[in-house]
Simulated assay, not measured.
Amino acid sequence: MGRASDFDAALEYAVSLGWLWSGFGRIRLTAPGDEEMQTIWLGRGARNEPPRHGPPAPSSTALKSGA
């Protein structure tokens, strides 16, 4: 389904945006993460607005350089 490095990069990205908290062997959804999910999933908003796309995912080069 995917490589471990892809999962690690996605996790790092979500943590860097404050959408997830990772620590003590656990991953937790944060309030900003829940708000972001409601903006991108059709029908999750209060008025069923169309999905809004968040910021673009970083390139693999940016992740490797630590940017």
Results as ranks from 00 to 15, higher is better:
Leu11Gly: 03
Gly54Arg: 04
Gly66Ala: 04
Pro51His: 05
Asn48Met: 04
Ala10Ile: 01
Pro51Gln: 04
Arg26Phe: 05
Thr61Tyr: 09
Gly45Asp: 13
Arg52Met: 08
Thr61His: 08
Ile40Ser: 11
Gly23Leu: 07
Gly18Leu: 04
Val15Met: 07
Tyr13Leu: 00
Glu36Asp: 00
Gly33Thr: 03
Arg3Ala: 12
Ser5Asp: 15
Ala10Arg: 05
Asp34Met: 08
Leu42Ile: 05
His53Val: 13
Pro55Phe: 00
Pro56Cys: 02
Lys64Val: 09
Pro55His: 03
Asp6Ala: 14
Pro58Ser: 02
Met1Arg: 09
Ala46Cys: 03
Asp8Lys: 12
Asp8Glu: 14
Arg26Glu: 14
Ala10Thr: 04
Arg44Leu: 15
Gly23Trp: 07
Arg3His: 12
Phe7Trp: 10
Glu36Tyr: 11
Leu29Asp: 01
Glu35Ala: 15
Ser60Met: 06
Trp21Gly: 11
Ser5Tyr: 03
Gly25Tyr: 07
Thr61Ser: 11
Gln38Glu: 15
Pro32Lys: 04
Glu12Gln: 11
Arg3Cys: 01
Glu35Gly: 07
Asp34Gly: 08
Pro55Cys: 01
Gly43Ile: 09
Gln38Phe: 01
Gly18Glu: 06
Asp8Phe: 04
Pro58Cys: 02
Trp19Phe: 15
Trp41Met: 13
Pro50Val: 05
Thr30Tyr: 01
Ser60Lys: 12
Leu11Val: 08
Ala4Glu: 12
Ala4Asp: 10
Ser60Val: 13
Phe24Leu: 11
Gly25Met: 08
Ala14Gln: 09
Ala31Lys: 11
Asp6Lys: 06
Glu49Cys: 01
Glu36Ile: 00
Ala4Cys: 01
Arg28Pro: 00
Gly2Val: 14
Pro32Trp: 05
Ser59Glu: 09
Glu12Met: 05
Ala4Thr: 15
Ala14Arg: 02
Phe24Ile: 02
Ser22Val: 14
Gly33Ile: 03
Ala57Ile: 08
Arg47Asn: 09
Arg52Asn: 03
Asp34Tyr: 13
Gly66Tyr: 01
Lys64Ser: 14
Ala46Pro: 12
Leu17Ala: 04
Gly18Met: 04
Ile40Val: 13
Arg28Leu: 13
Ala62Trp: 03
Arg28Phe: 07
Ala9Met: 07
Leu42Gln: 14
Thr30His: 01
Pro55Ala: 12
His53Ser: 11
